[in-house]
Each structure stands twice: as C-alpha cells, then as structure tokens.
C-alpha cells in the first residue's frame, strides 16, 4: 500500500489544524461547535481568491483572514456579549453554509460548474508547507501550555477563571484571543481542503470534518501532543475504510465505515486510562 501513508498525512492536515485551534479555545474555557462553518468559510474564500487569478498562497492567507473574522464574530457574540455558545455555533454553521453556497452560486452560476484550481506547492510527502506547520502545532502548543506564561494564563482561564481575573487579566480578552487563533486555524484547514486535497469547491465541501475535529479534541483529552496520534488515527481510519471497500470486503455495511471515526473517538474515551477531564470552566461565561 504505497499511497496510504501519504493519503493519511494529507487528510490529517485540515483536521489537525481545526482541532489544534479548537483545543486552544476549549482550554481557555470557551467552546465553538461551529468549526464546520469556519472551515467551510475558509474553503470557500480560498476558492474565490484562487479562482479570481491569485496564487494558492494568497488563497491560503485569505482563508486565514476569513477565519480570523469568523473567530472575531464568535468572540463578539459568545464571549463579549455572552450569548449561548452552542446557539451561536449552530447559527454560525447555518450562516456559513448558506453564505458560501450563495457565494459559490454567484461565481459558478446557478447550476454550478466544475472549476479546477491550482494546488499549494508541495514541499515534502505530498504536503504543502501549511501541512508541515499543522504537524508542528501540537508540539508548539505543548510547549506553549507547559512552559510559557501566556500559555499558563490561557489554561487557567479555562480552569479557574476567577483566579485569572484576580490577577488582573481579562478572561473575556484571553478567550477572545483564543477564538481568533482558533478561527484562523480552522480557516487554514478549510483552505488546505480546497487547495491541496479537493482542488475545487462545492456546496458543503467540508462534509462534517468540523465535527470530526471537535471529536479529535475530546479524543486527545485536551492534551496538545495527543492531537497527533488522535488525528492520525481518525484520518488513517478514513483512508483505510476506502482501502477496505476498494479491496472488495463488502461484508461490512457501509454505514459502519461512515460512523467509524466517531465510533473510534467514543471508544477511545470509553477505554481511556487518563483521568484528565475537560477544562473545568468549559462553556461557562467569563467572569
């Protein structure tokens, strides 16, 4: 199986980027279930920019900017205005699905068109440099959370926000920054999906990857380093299920293949020996 490693690595990139962003946001105590919407936004913006004749690199940065904007919107509603994060995320998913579909219609016409895009340049193993960066994030974040003062403050905002406030930090401010970071990474993940994997955009291109990334964060039990094996396992399971089907093993119902990544995450949680739980203040408003 020559291609399976490369396929797994490439499929991991969007998931890893989005999951790394969400991990930071959740460690800060907030929760965005609308990553699917942010990834879709990034995917679309990258498509629109590259389709307009700009370079794939410009498309990637445009998607990062769109992700930042999405993160800012989430921070405004769910953190600053303290609206319910679940509701904000749900509305955001709908808004992003509708807006990107409408934008696509404006570009590709009412009945669509198959528009192929140039790819991000490959650096190594079929990965663009953004892909390499994705694999560096877990390590960087591990150091960030364990060795740096901002990392400790951010983590504390998700565990004991009152104490963080007592030290003179704005918990809402910390979480808003985390939301910006998370949005940027999810946007980049969408861009990689468009530019390096799909080479085009269609309505609903992300096909549930935002929710998978959410699962990966839980799977990794909010530990940055654990993101790597968790993502590789989920992406590997996806790549493997295509192999199994292609190998002609039709005894397994294909619904099992579809549910495989989620089942895997849940099973890992059920048998996990680590007792590290979720950030204690996850989903509570900033004091």
């Amino acid at each position: 199986m020559p291609g399976i490693l490369e396929t797994t690595l490439l499929l991991s990139v969007p998931l890893l980027l989005a999951a790394a962003g969400e991990l930071v946001l959740e460690r800060s105590g907030s929760l965005q279930i609308g990553m699917e919407g942010t990834m879709l936004t990034g995917a679309f913006v990258a498509f629109a920019i590259v389709h307009a004749g700009k370079s794939p690199g410009a498309g990637l940065w445009g998607a990062v900017a769109a992700g930042l904007l999405s993160g800012a919107l989430f921070a405004l509603f769910a953190i600053v205005l303290r609206a319910d994060p679940i509701l904000t995320g749900t509305a955001w998913n709908l808004l992003a699905a509708g807006s990107t579909a409408f934008g696509y219609e404006l570009i590709a016409g009412k009945t669509g068109a198959v528009l192929e895009l140039p790819s991000l340049p490959v650096v190594v193993m079929g990965l663009p440099w953004a892909g390499l960066a994705a694999f560096a994030f877990p390590v960087i974040l591990h150091i960030f959370f364990s060795r740096t003062r901002p990392g400790l403050v951010l983590g504390a905002a998700g565990e004991t926000p009152m104490a963080v406030r007592a030290q003179g930090y704005s918990v809402a401010g910390v979480r808003s920054l985390a939301s910006l970071f998370s949005g940027a990474l999810s946007g980049a993940g969408g861009a990689v999906l468009t530019l390096s994997i799909s080479h085009t955009f269609v309505e609903g291109l992300t096909a549930g990857r935002g929710f998978l990334a959410l699962g990966i964060v839980v799977f990794a039990r909010w530990r940055p380093l654990a993101l790597l094996p968790a993502t590789l396992l989920v992406a590997g399971a996806t790549a493997l299920q295509y192999r199994l089907q292609a190998g002609g093993s039709t005894q397994i119902p294909y619904a099992v293949f579809i549910a495989l990544p989620s089942l895997l995450s849940l099973a890992a949680l059920a048998v996990a020996t680590s007792r590290r739980g979720a950030p204690k203040a996850l989903g509570t408003p900033a004091p």
């Binding site: 396929t7 499929l11 999906l193 994997i197 799909s198 080479h199 085009t200 269609v202 309505e203 609903g204 291109l205 096909a207 996806t238 790549a239 295509y242 089907q245 292609a246």
Partner: peptide, 9 residues
C-alpha cells in the same frame, strides 16, 4: 459533496 473523499477512494 465530499470531493476529497472521492479522490481518496
């Protein structure tokens, strides 16, 4: 809609 999935397959 999953272009990436179709390609991988």
């Amino acid at each position: 809609e999953d272009v990436a999935g179709a390609k991988t397959a």
